[in-house]
């Protein structure tokens, strides 16, 4: 059973409903969504695949690590697999801590590690019919 990977559409609002805690004064929800362009080219959709067993364990371990490091009450992440249309969520990270600083820091740490280290890959499909597998994360050149 997949916990941190999903072939189904991610219901962000349903997640939000469940991500609260009596001791968490700051909750951050990051939703990485598919945009309709990349470097001037029109994107029709993205396709994601993963080395699923590895990715599941790495995300679980990453969340445990972040929970301890920032003393989080809430640490959750799920990444979509398969075809994801424009404007749909590809990845969600939710962090909750006593204060906002820890929640923000932990959230950014988790999404960066998911993007850079977890064996998950995107293939960009363009409106002109071409496709390109994502190589390195583009974080270093531009913001998501």
């Amino acid at each position: 059973m997949m916990t941190h990977l999903s072939t189904e559409k991610i219901d962000v609002m349903a997640l939000w409903e469940h991500c609260h805690h009596v001791a968490a004064g700051g909750i951050v929800l990051f939703s990485g969504e598919v945009r309709n362009n990349h470097r001037g080219r029109n994107v029709s959709h993205l396709y994601y695949e993963a080395a699923e067993q590895m990715a599941e364990k790495m995300i679980a371990d990453l969340l445990d690590e972040a929970k301890q490091r920032w003393e989080l009450q809430i640490a959750y992440a799920v990444h979509r697999l398969g075809n994801v249309p424009v404007m749909e969520t590809a990845v969600v990270v939710v962090t909750g801590a006593a204060h906002r600083k820890e929640a923000y820091e932990a959230n950014q740490y988790i999404i960066d590690r998911i993007k850079h280290e977890t064996p998950i890959w995107k293939c960009e499909y363009f409106a002109d019919g071409q496709r390109i597998w994502g190589g390195h994360c583009s974080c270093h050149q531009e913001s998501t």
């Binding site: 080395a51 990845v91 998911i114 998950i120 995107k122 994360c137």
Partner: peptide, 10 residues
Amino acid sequence: VLVIPPSSGG
């Protein structure tokens, strides 16, 4: 053996 290209999730 899994042959794992650079990650590009997110």
